[in-house]
Design a protein around this nucleic acid. Structure first.
Lengths: 226, 226
DNA sequence: GGCAATACGATCAGGGCTGCAGGTTTTATT
DNA sequence: AATAAAACCTGCAGCCCTGATCGTATTGCC
């Protein structure tokens, strides 16, 4: 077929068509990987299944990711970025008074497919030092971001690092715990709400304690009585 | 070599030597499976590695377990029995006053290799309906046993099912959460103790509330004030 | 001692998965 | 238009794992 060369040949700046195409299929493959992790688990996720799920030839896939491990690394980083983005969005929309809403939204994150996929990778990383080497710094960054964000939202934590650290750890622990305990049927689903409300109450109490200490240390450096 | 037949030929009752041998190697294989789950994870646990770890030929192994799936099922049941046994032992040695000790011992269970192995199986069960069909009733039994045990130890819970259910769910959630949050580096290891102590405090408060309600309902059916 | 059953061992065929070695098509540059 | 480079596809060889078959040794029963 002659005359097919009607395609634009612009040398102008901006992402080239190649770059766009490349990024697109790359994203398609990573998306497919996440779906596979959810559907089949880490053990059952093969390059073949991912290629099928992404509707891409295995060759194309190997072009973007040298081997299966590289694919997992890239997926881990992508999941990390998604979690960060969700976290930032949550914080931005946040109304200072509604601790309950914040907890609720955080919990929704832990119910998302992204968290399942992340959990699969985290479990795999336990016995895969290379994967662990990728995940570890990401987790670290996530923790730190959360910390800073919370300090911006609740300045009163500033002078009560103990209460803050506990509130943070409690939140992480309970959210992770709910997700896993549900997965393993270690608690009944109808108890989730009660546990979440309990967490909210705990956070509020710790905040109050932090505020009290903040006021106390403001007047004079009097250590709070036990 | 003649004269080797000095081996006892007793037809007496009791487990035969065959039965003993069989049970022994069976146990060796299951032990090896658990170790493999810890070492290599579910994805990396193959029949070959298990046989090596157990120091048994693959043939012998296939004699006791028809296929890899059967091995996993048997391991799941074995882990369940171990967890039950540990739980009963914990309850028996228990001194009624020391909530802290009970929490501490429960936490130690969650740090054991058995829990890791169990977690690997539980994660695998998420995408393996056959394995899930095995694990589900076991989990159910574990929950129920825990419930009954706790009611025997703390009769005051009896008339405060809400507080009891919350205390139970909180314990399960936090213990699971600590284990997983540590695994995923979502909390710092030095915070574990603080979270555990917080759990103890919560349980004590719920117990007190339960006791109060118990007394109130004893005199008359007056609903406890908020 | 003889026979059956059980426990165990060595070997093999088949299947699925991986990684790579070639090609073909599309895009970018000149 | 010509060339290079990037994106993409097809097919193959090798590997590990699995399940099964056959053979051997031990044990139980008579």
């Amino acid at each position: 077929m002659p005359g097919v060369a009607t395609k634009p040949r612009r040398t102008s700046e901006g992402p080239t068509r190649q770059a766009i195409k490349s990024a697109t299929t790359r994203a398609r493959i990573i998306d497919a990987t996440i779906r596979c992790l959810v559907k089949y688990g880490y053990a059952g996720t093969t390059t073949l299944k991912v290629a099928e799920e992404a509707d891409v030839s295995r060759g194309a896939m190997m072009h973007h990711f040298d081997n299966a491990a590289a694919l997992m690394y890239a997926t881990a980083e992508d999941l990390h970025q998604r979690r960060l983005k969700a976290h930032v969005r949550r914080a931005r929309e946040f109304d200072h008074q509604q601790t309950g809403k914040l907890v609720q939204q955080s919990w929704e994150q832990f119910r998302s497919p992204n968290f399942i996929a992340f959990l699969e990778l985290a479990m795999a990383a336990r016995t895969d030092e290379h994967l662990a080497a990728i995940l570890s710094p990401l987790q670290r960054e996530y923790r730190e971001r959360w910390y800073r964000q919370a300090l911006e939202l609740y300045p009163e934590w500033e002078s009560a690092s103990d209460e803050f650290a506990l509130a943070f750890s409690l939140s992480q622990t309970i959210l992770h715990g709910l997700a896993v305990a549900l997965l393993t049927e270690s608690i009944k689903p109808e108890m989730v709400e009660a546990v979440l409300r309990n967490l909210e109450r705990q956070i509020r109490e710790l905040r109050a304690a932090a505020k009290a200490r903040s006021l106390a240390s403001e007047g004079a450096s009097v250590p709070a009585p036990a």
